[in-house]
Lab assay of single mutants.
Amino acid sequence: KFNKELSVAGREIVTLPNLNDPQKKAFIFSLWDDPSQSANLLAEAKKLNDAQAPK
C-alpha cells in the first residue's frame, strides 16, 4: 500500500510547476522518511504550489 501511495505522491510532487527543485527534493525526502504521511505531504506540497503560483 505505501509503495503505491509513495510513487503516486512522488510523481505528483515532481510535476508541481510552482515548486523549485529544493522544495520538491525536501518533500520527496520526507516521503521516503515516512511513507505513511504521503497523503498529508502531497496536500502540503499542493498548498505550497498554489501559494507560489504567479499572480
Results as ranks from 00 to 15, higher is better:
F2H: 12
F2W: 12
N3H: 12
K4T: 12
K4G: 12
E5A: 11
E5Q: 08
L6Q: 06
L6S: 05
S7F: 14
S7W: 15
S7D: 09
V8R: 13
V8Q: 12
V8F: 09
V8E: 12
A9Q: 05
G10A: 15
G10L: 15
R11S: 07
R11Y: 13
R11H: 11
E12M: 13
E12L: 13
E12N: 06
I13F: 02
I13V: 03
I13A: 01
V14Q: 12
V14K: 07
V14L: 14
V14P: 03
T15P: 01
T15I: 07
L16M: 10
L16H: 03
L16V: 01
N18E: 02
N18I: 01
L19T: 01
N20W: 06
P22R: 14
P22Q: 14
P22M: 15
P22F: 15
Q23G: 03
K24E: 01
K24N: 03
K24C: 10
K25L: 15
A26R: 11
A26Q: 12
A26V: 05
F27C: 05
F27V: 00
I28E: 08
I28M: 07
I28C: 14
F29W: 11
F29E: 15
F29T: 15
L31G: 02
W32R: 00
D33N: 09
D33G: 07
D33S: 10
D33Y: 06
D33V: 07
D34S: 04
D34I: 00
P35Y: 03
P35T: 03
P35D: 05
P35W: 04
S36T: 10
S36D: 08
Q37R: 06
Q37I: 05
S38K: 06
S38M: 15
S38L: 14
A39N: 08
A39L: 10
L41E: 03
L42H: 02
A43I: 09
A43L: 09
E44M: 09
E44V: 06
A45L: 02
K47F: 07
L48F: 03
L48R: 03
L48T: 04
L48N: 03
D50K: 08
D50C: 07
D50V: 06
A51R: 10
A51Y: 11
Q52W: 04
Q52H: 04
Q52E: 05
P54M: 07
P54K: 08
